[in-house]
Computed example of a mutant assay.
Amino acid sequence: MSLSHDEFKNALSHFASGVTVVTFTDMTRTGGLTVSSFSSLSLDPPLILFNLQKNISSHDPLLSSGKFTVNILASEQAELSNQFASGKIDKHELIQKLACDLGHNGVPYLSGTLARIECDLEKEIDGGDHTIVVGRVLFAASDDSKHPLLYYRRKYREFAD
């Protein structure tokens, strides 16, 4: 029995997820990308993970930077997610335009997010056409007054209490 890419992607679209933007700074530029494949990994030590597509321009700079911040987006930040997902927008210029503050790890973080998790790169693991990125958490902050931006069946969804 053969599984098509479309069948696989459609089945996966039925898993609701939060939306994050991972920001990073390499030697010369800042960058960021939208990531929905984010998860906690370990409490002791504090580790998180996400999957990074190998053929995107952010792949090598993010890994070579050795540090990054996971920005968990709030419900009103769908447009920000779209901007960081677009291949037509210079993410360095976008971060400059947003006037992001620097976190404890020296990486820009986005304002108005639900939470941010600042990390050092702990490990890279081959995952087929993706790299599984494991980060050691150095600092975390959150805003309990906000609701998450959710993604389900290829669309943003509203959080329902």
Rank of each mutant, 00 (worst) to 15 (best):
S42P: 05
A141H: 12
N10I: 01
E76G: 15
I117D: 01
L121V: 03
D144P: 01
A160P: 00
V21G: 01
G128T: 02
S65P: 13
H92A: 09
A99I: 02
G135E: 09
S86I: 11
T69Q: 03
K146C: 08
S65H: 13
D44G: 04
C119Y: 04
D144R: 07
A140L: 15
D126G: 06
A78D: 15
H59D: 04
E158N: 14
F84N: 00
P108Q: 01
A140D: 00
D60W: 06
T23N: 08
D90Q: 06
S64N: 15
L41T: 11
A16T: 15
Y109L: 06
T69E: 03
N55V: 09
F50G: 12
A160W: 03
G31A: 10
Y151V: 03
D120C: 06
T30W: 02
V107T: 09
S142P: 01
V35H: 09
D126P: 08
Q77I: 04
N55Q: 14
I56N: 10
M1R: 03
E118T: 03
V107H: 05
L114V: 08
I72S: 12
A141G: 12
L110T: 00
H14V: 03
V35W: 11
L150K: 08
R157P: 02
T28V: 07
G31S: 10
D129E: 13
P45C: 11
A99T: 08
H92L: 02
L98E: 01
S4Y: 04
D6A: 14
L149P: 08
S36G: 15
L94N: 03
P45M: 12
N82W: 05
D101E: 15
K123M: 11
C119H: 06
D90N: 15
L102S: 13
G135P: 10
T113I: 02
L149F: 05
S145P: 02
F84T: 00
L3P: 01
L102D: 11
S13A: 14
Y156D: 00
D26E: 08
E7Q: 14
L63I: 15
R136H: 14
S36Y: 01
H104N: 09
K146I: 06
Q53V: 12
M27Y: 06
L114E: 05
P46A: 15
E7H: 10
Q96D: 07
S36P: 03
N10S: 12
A160M: 09
T28Y: 08
L3V: 13
L102Q: 13
D126S: 11
P46Q: 11
H14F: 11
V21M: 02
L33D: 00
L114T: 03
G32A: 04
T30K: 10
F38H: 13
H92Q: 09
N82G: 14
E7D: 14
Q96V: 12
S86N: 12
F159T: 05
Y156C: 00
T25V: 09
A85H: 07
L47T: 04
D120L: 12
M1N: 04
S39Q: 12
T25C: 11
T131Y: 06
C100I: 09
C119G: 07
K97V: 06
A11W: 07
Y109F: 15
D129R: 03
G135W: 05
Q53E: 14
R29Q: 09
F38G: 10
K88G: 00
H130G: 07
I48K: 02
Y156K: 00
I89K: 06
K9C: 10
Y152V: 07
S2R: 07
Y151C: 06
G31Y: 08
